[in-house]
Write a protein that binds this DNA or RNA. Structure first.
Lengths: 146, 146
DNA sequence: CCTTGAGTTGAAGCTCACTTCAACTTGCAG
DNA sequence: CTGCAAGTTGAAGTGAGCTTCAACTCAAGG
């Protein structure tokens, strides 16, 4: 019917509030053309961009970084399959890292925090960190990134 | 040597800034005794609490909720192994959920956003959401929790 | 004792990611 | 043509999670 979306339509379709979409636009994450009366109109390809933004934000990537990644997409034309594939490959490793981090955290929680060792003094990890190694990491080790 | 930790020691051992520790204390997430000169002294078991707080916050649990969970720990005494086990079991399922969500996101990113379908119109998911189902979820589906 | 680094407070400030507001304009259905 | 939902703007507000500041006190080594 119409091949450009109003901000309300993009909002309904993406699940992102109009105010947030305007915010994303101010940050340069998405873009629009304007009608004669100055209203925003979005290409359908923006739906994909918004989905990408939400997925990325959900896993903790700051909007600024998402913007930097999106800036690698071609400016003038609608991104091709190849464009998106390139972008999502880089992002995938980021997701994999984040997932791996969380799995480590979960296993530590189970194996160490769950066992009561820090207060019961029956855990190797605790004894190493807290009683043997003065500069020792102890629980800190849990939080290291990368 | 000393069996109570100063705020600086707890900070060094946990990797959390003193200001953040005071903040946690204001919120009731951790507690301390005071010296004659009004300085905080922490029991060693607080290290475990702080580790728990950081792990939980890292996966997106708001501090208020973490506080609610910690409130289930016994007030007077140092928590036992059983106390922590109960707490961490409930939390583990939360971590599992979060991990599963991220895996779903990753797979969708690979299988759908990665393939270029939203702009190339070759993807079932896209066609369903965007062309067949008017109230359809489309990319929104990606973001649903639970 | 003296110095110095560590700790104390409440209040204010900061970043991120938005939302809300007020005052106004557009676009479309009837 | 009219009415009204939907859109526009910049500025200010929100809430989470801290950090910084100023002005001060404490604790411990030399």
């Amino acid at each position: 019917m119409h091949d450009l979306l109003t901000i309300g339509e993009l909002s309904a379709r993406s699940g992102v509030a109009p105010s947030a979409l305007r915010y994303y636009e101010r940050l340069g994450l998405i873009s629009s053309t304007r009608t004669g009366g100055n209203q925003r109109r979005y290409e359908r390809s923006m739906l994909r961009r918004v989905a990408f933004i939400r997925v990325s934000a959900q896993v903790g990537v700051p909007l600024e970084e998402i913007g930097a990644a999106l800036a690698d997409l071609p400016a003038g034309r609608t991104p091709t399959r190849t464009d998106w594939t390139r972008l999502s490959r880089a992002w995938r490793s980021r997701l994999d890292e984040q997932i791996a981090l969380m799995e480590r955290l979960r296993d530590r929680l189970d194996g160490c925090i769950g066992c009561g060792c820090l207060s019961l003094k029956t855990c190797g990890l605790y004894n190493h960190g807290d009683e043997l190694a003065e500069q020792g990491p102890g629980p800190v080790r849990l939080m290291r990134r990368g």
